[in-house]
Structures are given as structure tokens and as C-alpha cells.
Design a protein around this nucleic acid. Structure first.
Lengths: 195, 195
DNA sequence: TGTACATCAGTGAACGCGCGTTCACTGATGTAC
DNA sequence: TGTACATCAGTGAACGCGCGTTCACTGATGTAC
């Protein structure tokens, strides 16, 4: 068989990476197959050697974030389950709600960039989204000691606060309110991680 | 001039109402002019007697929610500014994070239904979004007594928590986690309103 | 009051562009001998 | 080792559908006389 066995795999990864960035910036629908392939240094027709349809790309793109930063979250959460480390959660919050993350249209978390796109996508895409959320919640929960029910409620609320705050900041028109929302969420979430 | 002067206005409102519901359910892009007009009991061609383009509908649809429930929030927030009423905020939170609101695909708040759509829309649409958010924040802030900076941070965080929690619940695939997230946000937000 | 007229909201056929998808072809690369 | 061959990843032109938008027309209704 011509082309080494990993050659196709590599190309596929280039396509997914290209798609992830473009989707983050423009949403699923405004990105054309042509844009994805061109951005990956390929041409339109080859796309269907790798994917059955455009929709099949959505899940792959969300998963690709999951394999990167999402995997890191899970790793951090599992560091030492018997010894909760609130600092881990605090660092993660600081990064997630940082001005850098807010400005990083290409690399941002898809839960911020694509909420309604994913809500309307097929269940496989939503399953990737759920895994990503769970990774975040695990990290938060692992940083909180004790009384299970309360800790779980708190961890889920912290996730909603971080993601919600960033979505608001991203959606508002440019004005002082953008940073005000981001900062309020950052402070409140940090307080919740400490207590 | 034929047709009473309010006749056109009424028709326009029918179109906007039809659009608001369809947008909430399907997002901006998946809704066609034909769907909007048919749902309003009209035919395709007439649309351009009322709007310059499809995009011009987006802002009108978001504003129409603002005129309804958003106006109610603002009215509630202004009831008696010298006498903060945490109960008002608590009721609003209970309604916003209720299972009914979560299931109300047609009537739900556009901040939940359309976050990424609005983030990619033109600044007028985003301005309507900002007004809506401010109405909610005012209501929360008016229910909290005192120390301005902290109250403001708390009100903004409560809004991020409510909206974020509902977006997560809406985006997750069907599973127990949906209600778990909603309930966690509901409890935490209620606690924040009380203290 | 009744009739002719003017206006313009609403109709529905048609246009044309964009984009997802298909397809016949090319050419790079691994394998057989 | 070198050459012919087979495979299949990648190319780019073409197809066709859907949808935003346009346009010539219709007909309901207010106004003028």
C-alpha cells in the first residue's frame, strides 16, 4: 500500500486541527469545507477521503480539544485524590477566566465558543461536550474537601459560573461591562474554591 | 393611503414574534425567511416590505423578548430602591432555573437559546443582549443590601451562574447530569441571593 | 351616499449564488520480481 | 539493485439543491369627488 500507514492519519489530524480553530472562531455553519481544507493546506475534494460528511467533523473537532486541554484537567484532578489541593482549582480558574483566554479566539474552550452550535448538533458532539464539562467539574470537586453533596453542588456551580461568565463576556459588545463580568466571575469562583 | 396605518405595524409584529419563537428553537441560521413568514401566516415575498434583510430580523427578535420579560425585570428592580427585597431576586432565580423554563424551547430567554448566534451577530443585536443582561443584574443587585462593590460583583456572578447553568443544562445530552447542573445552580444562586 | 381611483401590503414565480458533495483523473509511494 | 506495477491520497471541475432576494403583479382598502 502506497503512502505510509500513518500518512493518512496525519492528514486527518491536520484537517481536524484546522477545523477546530476555524469552528472556534466562526461557529460550525459559517465555516465551509473549502476553508477547512485550504487552511490545512489541502484541496476541497480530498475531504471525503477522511470524513463521511461535514457534520462528522463537529464531533472530531470538539474531541480534539478534549484530548488536549481536557485531558490535562483530568490528569490534574487525579493527581492525589486523598489529598485535595485547592490550589489546582484556583490556578485553573485563573487561567480559564483570564484576559488571555478571553482573547484567544482560536484556542479557547469550545464550551465558550460553541454553546448553541453544540446544543443543536448530534448526540455524539454533545457527548464530547459532556466529557469536557465532567473533566472540569472533577478538577473542581477534587480541590474541595469533604461533605460530598455540598462539594458536588459547589463544583457544578463553579463550572457554570466560569463557563457562563466567559460566554457573557464573549457575547457582550465591547464595553467596560465585558471585563467587569469576567472579573466578577473570577473573584467569586476563586472565593468558592478557597472556602 | 390604503390599509389603516396600524395594519402594517401589526403585521410586522406578527413576523417578529414568529421569528423570535423559531430562532429560539433552531438558531438564526437554520430558520429560513419562508419558515418565518409561513409561521406568521404570510408568504415569502412580503418579508422585504418590513425588513431590509434577514439579518435585520435578529435584533428585532431579541428586542421583542426585551420588551416582554426583560421589561418586567426592570420594573421589578425599580419597585422600591430604598428597600431591597431579596425575595424578588429569589423568585426570579426560581423561575429562571425552573424545569419549566428549561423545557420551554419557544419562550425561553434568548441569552440561553442563542449565545453563540448573538456573539457572531452585528453590534445592534449584541446591544439588545446587553440590555437584557443589565435588566437581570439590576434585579439581582436591587435585592442585595449595601456595600456597593461586593453587591455588584455578586449580582454579576449570580447572572453568570443562572445563565451558564441553563446553557449547560440545555447543551448536555439527556442524562441525570442535566437536572443535577440545573439544581446545583439553582441552590447556589438562591444562597447567594439570601446572604 | 355611491363610484372611480390611487396606493401599497401581500403574492408567488423566478433568479442566482454559495456550498456540500460527487467523480473521473493524477501522481506519489510502497511492493513484487 | 533496478524497473514495472498497483494502490489510493489528493486534485479540481462539475453538479444540484436550498435559500436569500427581486420583481411584476394582484387585490384590499382608504380617499376624492
Amino acid at each position: 500500500m502506497p503512502y505510509s500507514s500513518e500518512h493518512k492519519q496525519k492528514t486527518r489530524e491536520k484537517i481536524v486541527e484546522s477545523a477546530r480553530i476555524l469552528f472556534n472562531r466562526h461557529g460550525f455553519q459559517d465555516v465551509t469545507i473549502d476553508m477547512v481544507m485550504q487552511n490545512a493546506g489541502l484541496t476541497r475534494g480530498g475531504f471525503y477521503n477522511h470524513f463521511k460528511s461535514k457534520e462528522a467533523l463537529y464531533g472530531a473537532a470538539v474531541s480534539s480539544f478534549l484530548m488536549g486541554r481536557g485531558a490535562q484537567w483530568r490528569a490534574d484532578a487525579g493527581v492525589d485524590p486523598t489529598n485535595p489541593d485547592p490550589d489546582m482549582a484556583r490556578q485553573m480558574i485563573a487561567g480559564y477566566l483570564s484576559p488571555e483566554h478571553l482573547g484567544d479566539l482560536d484556542g479557547q474552550c469550545p464550551m465558550i465558543a460553541l454553546p448553541s452550535d453544540i446544543a443543536r448538533a448530534n448526540p455524539e458532539v454533545q457527548a464530547s461536550y459532556q466529557e469536557l464539562l465532567e473533566a472540569m467539574v472533577w478538577l473542581f470537586e477534587s480541590g474541595l474537601e469533604g461533605q460530598d453533596d455540598k462539594a458536588r453542588q459547589k463544583a457544578l456551580s463553579m463550572a457554570a459560573l466560569c463557563i457562563g461568565g466567559m460566554i457573557l463576556a464573549r457575547t457582550l459588545p465591547a464595553s467596560a461591562l465585558v471585563q467587569e463580568v469576567r472579573l466578577a466571575a473570577l473573584r467569586t469562583a476563586t472565593e468558592m474554591a478557597a472556602r
